[in-house]
Structure formats: C-alpha cells, structure tokens
Design a protein around this nucleic acid. Structure first.
Length: 475
DNA sequence: ATGTTC
C-alpha cells in the first residue's frame, strides 16, 4: 500500500490524493501518534473515505484515530448535500450519538473521605444498570412513549420529571435533535429500545467520579462551573441496542440501493446513499431518533447519579455539558469561499463549537463549547473548549483511542488483577464483568495526555481542565 | 458499540 504521506507540521500530515480519492487525507497527529500505514488499517480507511461522492476539503482523522467499521474511529468527513453528497451509517458508527456528559458536584476532593467515597460508589453501583442486557432506570410504558423519547430526547425526559430545564441549556442541540421520525425505526429496533432507557451499556462506557487535578484555563473553567479539586461525575454512554439496530438496518438498506444511485465504494462497509435520497433521508430520520434516545439515556443516568449524591453526600450535581461524538449533522460551512450545506460525519470525533457560534448558550459565547474527553479506565479525562478557525469543521478528538484489540487486551491482564491494581492506586471499581474490565485495561489505549496535546497543537481545541478518576462504575 | 454470529 504505497500511500504518500507528507508531514505538514508537528501535528498534521497530508495523505496525497491519488486514484479514486476526491480529496486528500489529513491526519492530525504527532509522529508518535500517527498509525503505521503498514500494520494498521486506519489510514487506509482515511483514504477509502476520501473516495465518497460529494466529500469536500479532506478526509480528516483526529489524533486518537483507530480502525473501525468502514470509516476510522476518529474520522471526520463532510459531504456537500446539494451536490449529491452522501450520508453513510458507517460514518456515524453503531453507537449512534454515543457521547459524554459532565456533572459538577458542590464538593471538593478534600471533603470526600475514603469511607464516604466507598459508600457513594456502592450506591452508584446499585443505581446504574450496566452490562449487556435489558435493565433500565426508566421502563417505558410502550411504543407510544418510546416514540416521544425518540422525538424529544432529554427534553422529553425533563418534561417527565427527570432533570431540570437548566440541564437542557447545557445539552448539545438543547437536548433534542430535530428531524427524528419513528417511522424510519424498525420494529426490532423499537423492541430493543423499550427496556434499556437509562442504562450504561458495556465496552468503554462508564460512569466515573472524578476530581479536577489541573486547571489550564481559569476563565473558561469558571464559565463551565469548574474549579481546582472539584468533584465531578462523567458519564460515557450511547443509544444501546436501539442505535445498533438502526445502524444495522440502514447499512443493509443502503447496500441494496447503492447500485440504483450509481455509487461504488472501495469497502462495502462504506455503504451510503445521497443525503437527499429516500434512503439517505430515512437514515438521517432514524439516526436523529437514536440520537434523542442516547441523550435521554444520559439524562436518566444523570438522575440516578444525582439520587446517589444527594443520599450519600447531600449535594447536587450541576450539568456542565452533554456532547455527542458519534453523529452526522447537516451544517453550513464556507468551502472555497462559498457557504455550503454539508453533512458532517463525526465518528469518534467531538463537536467543538468556537466562541460566538450561534448554537452556543449565551453564557458560554465568550469561551466556546465545552468538549468532554473521556480517558481510558484509571487515567485522566479532559475538558477542552472549541476554538476559532478549526480546520476540521469544528471537530476534535473524542478520547484516548484504542491501541490494541479487546482480545489482545484480555490476554494481557486478568480482570481481577486490573481491579486490584486500580484499587491499589486509590480508584474504587464497580464493574459488570471481569472480562469486560480486562478488555478496558489502559495499556490497550493511547496516552490521552498526548492525544489532547496533539489536538490542541493542531488547532482543533484548547485545554481547559484535567480530571483524575476516584471511582469508576464500569459497563 | 452490540440480546458480542443472520
């Protein structure tokens, strides 16, 4: 595979356009973080995405890029909707609207004794349904109520008493994506969604109690409601079986429709359809529904965490922000000096709105959007902020990025061993399965500090605060 | 990520 890679700056390389590529590839990575094009398939995936109909500017990869289904995880691709640009379910991923929310407690690290932390973790462990299966904080009454969740997201959850109107001001899209249509969601996806609302899931999903260890930008941190030593809760979860089923259903439908649209792709996992075609619109409507399910899910998990904090510590949790890192959005951007309507796919890439962006709440206009970066288990997490002149359609990294497969990880360490190591380091662990724990060993991930430094160095965002884990409830 | 294989 002879791709030509040119380093343009310490945190940016270009993959030269050749063959069927419509645009070049651009990878934001230091030398150390750049995947090996020979042993790692993720740069080949960046090249494959560059062939998609309607793609503009470049096929981008964030510093935490790794191999995924069709598109790389850590990929950003924008297509011109009014020029036949496509939408691809593989460009969003199976866990539609997977994302992160951060809550700030009215409590400092010094005020949380080891004994109280253990009690809090026990309570959170009880209150947070997790792992594979069908348990939920909110068992829905039936299909009609699920349809209201799919249309209203966190907004509907708050209307039903799960949270406060203030929460919605700190949610991307005000807590609900427009254009959701339950008619585009299969009966099977609906069935899977009925019993899982308010559950963490498995894999890299978690709920952590964290403390702010470093403040890099005092003004932005203050605007976000964060200070040194502050106790926080970070929730990383998505749209569970419902989002997964929607992805499966629409990949299948697009595979069938591609020939009719005269589209051919180098990898069948890149199945896609013009964003304006019936198949493209159906996917976008179902994707929006799954996005709203994912947001409502994190809203429900928030309420579970709030109950635990009130019960054990007598303190409340204020929402800092909720942002997705697996989503496609129709956005307007200037391309070659002209405003274009683009379908921006972010898969393992986080929206990072700059200061003054109209979608920001008023009180964050001066500092930009909070960007929440979950680290691997036992390592730091970050709060970043969006910056002006982002070169990748207002996107940045989404996490540490996997380095080794789940299988490799589980071979390297046992779950019990890992739990003991984390507990020994003062991190309380409430897991779901030993195998799941082992698969998430931090050795299987890139260095989140290096990923964030690269993202900042590449001009994708700026660092606001670093957080360290005190306790983890693991899916 | 995922009722971890339609």
């Amino acid at each position: 595979m002879g791709m030509r890679i040119v380093r343009e700056s310490p945190y940016r390389v270009r993959i030269e356009r050749e063959g069927d590529m419509r645009v070049p590839g651009v990878v934001f990575a230091s030398r150390a973080l750049l995947p090996d094009p020979v042993t790692d398939r993720s740069l080949l995936q960046v090249v494959n995405v560059a062939t998609l109909p309607g793609i503009v500017v470049a096929s981008f990869a964030m510093p935490d890029v790794h191999w995924g289904y069709g598109f790389p995880i850590g990929g950003v691709a924008a297509t011109d909707v009014d020029a036949g640009g496509v939408v691809s379910p593989g460009g969003v991923g199976f866990d539609i609207s997977c994302g992160v929310r951060l809550l700030a407690a009215g409590l400092e690290r010094a005020e949380l004794s080891g004994r109280v932390l253990q009690k809090l973790m026990d309570e959170l462990g009880r209150a947070v349904p997790r792992g594979l299966g069908r348990r939920a904080v909110w068992p829905l009454a039936g299909r009609a109520q699920l349809e209201r969740v799919l249309a209203g997201g966190s907004r509907y959850a708050v209307e039903q008493g799960y949270g406060t109107p203030r929460d919605l001001e700190r949610c991307e899209d005000g807590g609900a994506v427009g254009g959701a249509d339950a008619a585009a969601v299969s009966a099977r996806a609906m069935e899977r969604g009925l019993g899982q609302l308010g559950s963490l899931g498995s894999g890299n999903h978690f709920l952590e109690v964290q403390a702010v260890s470093e403040v890099h930008d005092e003004i932005a941190a203050k605007a976000f409601g964060l200070g040194p030593g502050q106790i926080c809760v970070m929730i990383h979860s998505g749209s569970r079986g419902l989002g997964h089923q929607i992805c499966t259903d629409h990949v299948r439908a697009m595979e069938k429709a591609m020939r009719r649209h005269s589209i051919s792709v180098p990898d069948r996992q890149l199945a896609c359809a013009p964003a304006g075609s019936p198949e493209g619109r159906a996917y976008l409507a179902a994707m929006a529904a799954a996005a709203n399910y994912g947001r409502a899910n994190r809203q429900l998990l928030t309420e579970a965490a709030r109950r635990a904090f009130r019960g054990v510590c007598g303190t409340d949790l204020e929402l800092v922000y909720d942002v997705s890192h697996n989503l496609a959005k129709i956005e307007t951007h200037r391309v070659d000096g002209t405003a274009r309507r683009l379908c921006v796919h972010r898969k393992g890439a986080t929206l990072a709105l700059p200061p003054r962006h109209p979608d920001l709440p008023e009180d964050l206009a001066d500092v930009g959007q909070p960007v929440l970066i979950p680290g691997s288990m036992g390592t730091a997490s970050y709060v970043l902020a969006g910056v002006a002149a982002n070169p990748a359609f207002n996107s940045t990294c989404h996490g540490a990025g996997r380095l080794h497969s789940r299988h490799q990880a589980a071979k390297a360490v046992s779950g019990r061993e890992l739990r003991d190591r984390l507990e020994g380091a003062g991190i309380a662990v409430r897991g779901a399965s030993w195998r799941g724990l082992a698969e998430e060993t931090p050795e299987a991930y890139k260095d989140v500090d290096a990923v964030v430094a690269a993202a900042e160095g590449a001009g994708l965002c700026r660092t606001v605060a670093r957080l360290v884990p005190l306790g983890v409830v693991k899916g």
